[in-house]
Deep mutational scan, measured.
Amino acid sequence: MASQGTKRSYEQMETDGERQNATEIRASVGKMIDGIGRFYIQMCTELKLSDYEGRLIQNSLTIERMVLSAFDERRNKYLEEHPSAGKDPKKTGGPIYKRVDRKWMRELVLYDKEEIRRIWRQANNGDDATAGLTHMMIWHSNLNDTTYQRTRALVRTGMDPRMCSLMQGSTLPRRSGAAGAAVKGVGTMVMELIRMIKRGINDRNFWRGENGRKTRSAYERMCNILKGKFQTAAQRAMMDQVRESRNPGNAEIEDLIFLARSALILRGSVAHKSCLPACVYGPAVASGYDFEKEGYSLVGIDPFKLLQNSQVYSLIRPNENPAHKSQLVWMACNSAAFEDLRVLSFIRGTKVSPRGKLSTRGVQIASNENMDAMESSTLELRSRYWAIRTRSGGNTNQQRASAGQISVQPAFSVQRNLPFDKPTIMAAFTGNTEGRTSDMRAEIIRMMEGAKPEEMSFQGRGVFELSDERAANPIVPSFDMSNEGSYFFGDNAEEYDN
């Protein structure tokens, strides 16, 4: 993207840094990872977990959730003011799984939030270390993106479920800051804005008074975040219109849905970061690795190297396929839920299948599930090659597409044709070009129609051997075009429920 120079890199967003050079960025990201790792080690000690239990991804998720809940100030305040039966607002906890007599047992633990905050700050040299908290939120978000298709949420806001490739980060909490905003897809931002506008339509006082002023500035800020994701002048001009509207209503909703559809071809720039579970960072720190000293990046080879040398386990339900569970977590670790499966298959070195073909449910185990038949197995999170994460949407291309997802959002900077089903997408653009945004709409449609099938995206960008740390010898991959490109292809993934 041309304006790259004016933006802070995501590592800076990730670490609240002012302008830093590459070495400083690597050190501050490393410091953040160190903090998460030290916190995780301490929690495993508190909970008396064995090494194996500490490497269980379900335990990692519970521990991450506990610290996120302990620092969720708004919710904590709300819980104190609106006490609900049987919930102690000062405590947080969740299921911890232990191996007892050759069987997995679930144990519900409860801790004072104050105590968890103390352990977290102690692991982070006394700081609140917001960057580390956001990092864990993005890992949870990436896992949700890989596990669930947001059909219901899309339909509720009037969008087409086939636009799911635009929904990265749709389950990120509001408090995820600049680093969170960077990884949100165009569809996620559109959905947040539509929800806001709908509230304004239904509630006369939404934009009024002292609160209304705050609401208005939040609305304009979200519009600017979305505008910054678009790469064409016409899309940005249309966002200006939406932002400046005196009284946002149905016309703005129409414009936003139009823009979301246009992003299936004229893709937005959305950041991709490899955020790993805390149970990967903990053992690495415990083994003596100093992330701050060595430096770390979320968008280069580092996460690949770390996963190459990590042992992570997962509980497996009786009829689940461990290899499929591994694929789910591998995609989440690489922030690749909406990437082209052919690119992923090449990088991973084994075939990556669409969601609907995987015999696996989510990673988390519900409290009512029976533990008797639970097994555990090693997650295979290694890769054959590594590639640089991208934040450009890439230019655009036609490809055989599917009944489910009709476009992709690249996660890796790797040369390819970008699949999208042009006739299906263009069919949504018939007729409606009147109104105050008509010239911009016409211009956007013209650009979409001009998108050429034979153009290559990320020209000359390749993948790298894991021994090639400096990215000196790019390998331009070859793809098996007979395979499906979309992950949520004609899909039956479970729906995400809060």
Rank of each mutant, 00 (worst) to 15 (best):
L259R: 15
R236P: 05
R361G: 03
R213M: 03
Q311R: 00
L166M: 04
V476A: 13
A218L: 13
Q399I: 15
D101N: 03
E254R: 13
T437N: 14
N319Y: 14
T215L: 03
A337T: 15
A403Q: 03
N370S: 06
R75S: 05
N142M: 11
E80P: 04
N483H: 15
G450D: 00
I33G: 15
G288H: 10
D480G: 13
G485A: 00
L79A: 12
G158C: 14
S9W: 10
I96P: 02
G490K: 09
D34L: 05
L266H: 06
D255Q: 11
D480C: 00
V190C: 12
L154T: 03
R384V: 04
T171Y: 07
S9I: 01
R117Y: 05
R195G: 09
T92Y: 11
V352W: 10
V109G: 05
V352E: 03
A129R: 12
R118F: 07
I116C: 14
L143C: 10
G431N: 00
N202C: 09
I41P: 06
K113R: 05
M159P: 02
A85R: 00
A263W: 09
F206R: 07
K90V: 00
F346Q: 04
L259W: 07
Y487L: 13
D468R: 10
N142I: 13
Q122L: 05
M43G: 09
Y281E: 07
L193C: 00
N21I: 02
R216W: 04
S170L: 14
M189Q: 01
R221F: 12
G86Q: 01
S359H: 02
A22F: 03
A2L: 10
S50A: 02
A179D: 13
A178K: 00
E46G: 09
R102W: 08
D112M: 09
A218F: 09
A401C: 00
T147D: 10
W330M: 06
Y52A: 15
Y10A: 02
L110A: 07
D72L: 03
F420G: 00
R152N: 08
T151R: 05
G268I: 08
R175F: 07
R208I: 02
S478V: 15
A182R: 05
D127L: 04
T92Q: 08
E244R: 10
S377D: 06
L79E: 14
N334W: 06
